[in-house]
Design a protein around this nucleic acid. Structure first.
Lengths: 228, 228
DNA sequence: ATAATATGATAGTAATACTATTAGTTTTGC
DNA sequence: GCAAAACTAATAGTATTACTATCATATTAT
């Protein structure tokens, strides 16, 4: 990635914040340290008060950026999926072979995240860990349907759609491309989680990555055709 | 199921409750109405105070059965997975054909839940909906590792293991039976959730059930051999 | 009939998830 | 260089949550 993305700004739904955190030092600090704090103490124990104390700022100041911690999580998730989408598009764009393209996409989606120096205030490695253990909580709520209408999950949905299209391109006869795609997106996070907390429930380990498992699974499932 | 299970009691980890809710009328009422209340207002908004008000009882009385709502959720989940395990074992026990056995197992795990009159105080249909939208929250916490050690997820893990064994029986060469199994268990809940809240992200609908999708997926993935 | 147990009612605490107000500090526009 | 505008910090306050403790009352067991 390197410098390529330095001038790019994530296109995040404006309703997710009160004031754009990218617009000030304090805002960036909130995002930067918020990620670390959620990672350290978990989303349930995370409060704006604690974050304020950590960054030597005030609870009320944070409320001027985010309505509440739920919106903050949605914001971080959007950031993460926007970043992932960028990586996906960038890496697959120039691949014309449909099978190779899908394989690459799966690898991007299921790979272990590495640090990206393009965004100084976001630690992508830690953000990825948050997404693994907290993302589900952002949609498993009574407000999903409304928040979905508000477009809070747009980027994620677009990703599922992109992958689904690549699946359909490889095997247009396959009847369930959307389910396969959404299963990969969710299943990837789940396999990473199991690897860390329930190793007895996954075949992934030091030697087998979720990416390998999913690439194998998808290509067993689809009937690939030669490109033409 | 019918009467068969009327004398059977779920074998739930004793540390999940302070006093066994099966041992009294109030206890059963807590479970029965707790399920309905969580379904109605969601786990985040659910409190013992509200449940007390609903059953015409007192907050403090409920605390005599469950330490907190998190343990209550773990209890309900254990009940659900115990019930599912029973159905699974019962339905597959007598099937000798390995392929048929696995197919049946997948159907049990991914089928839409129907009412079971065996347990009068538990509405399995509603409990299934709770599991779909709340189960992940029971393990996506900072305390997972400890709670796992305490055995709070034993039944679920046993189920993943059972399915994994059936997968391995069908195709002993398949390298990732555990991941496939845990993916099915989690993916099933997820596909049901998507069907309800993000229909654009799933191929499941009125005509295609998650069970069909997963049966198809697993049998595309595995190399089946004739039994012998 | 008495003791033991279960439940109910009330009160109290610390923390959470905010909102409102005010005051001070920086930034900017001219 | 100065005033206005914007931003941040500090404090206080509210309703709710997630409990714990105590005591009274009701039920059941012996």
């Amino acid at each position: 990635m390197d410098r390529l993305m330095q001038s790019i700004k994530m296109d995040i739904n404006e309703k997710l914040y009160v004031k754009d955190p990218e617009s000030s030092t304090l805002g960036k600090k909130i995002v930067e340290q918020g990620i670390l704090l959620i990672y350290e103490i978990g989303f349930e124990c995370f409060t704006f008060k604690k974050l304020g104390a950590r960054i030597g700022s005030n609870e009320s100041s944070i409320y001027r950026y985010f309505e509440n911690k739920h919106k903050f999580l949605l914001y971080l998730a959007s950031w993460y999926w926007g970043w992932t989408e960028y990586k996906l598009v960038f890496a697959t764009h120039s691949i014309s072979d449909r099978n190779e393209k899908l394989k690459k996409a799966l690898e991007i989606l299921a790979q272990t995240v590495e640090e990206d120096k393009s965004f100084t205030h976001v630690n992508e490695v830690v953000l990825n860990k948050i997404v693994i253990s907290e993302y589900s909580k952002s949609y498993l709520t009574k407000e999903v349907d409304n928040e979905n209408k508000e477009g809070y999950f747009t980027i994620y949905k677009r990703l599922v759609d992109r992958l689904s299209e690549m699946i359909a391109a490889v095997d247009p006869e396959y009847p369930y491309p959307l389910s396969l795609s959404s299963m990969v997106m969710e299943g990837t996070l789940h396999q990473f989680f199991l690897q860390e907390h329930f190793p007895a429930l996954t075949s992934c380990n030091d030697k087998v990555t979720p990416a390998e498992y999913f690439v194998d699974l998808i290509f067993r499932t689809l009937k690939t055709k030669p490109n033409g």
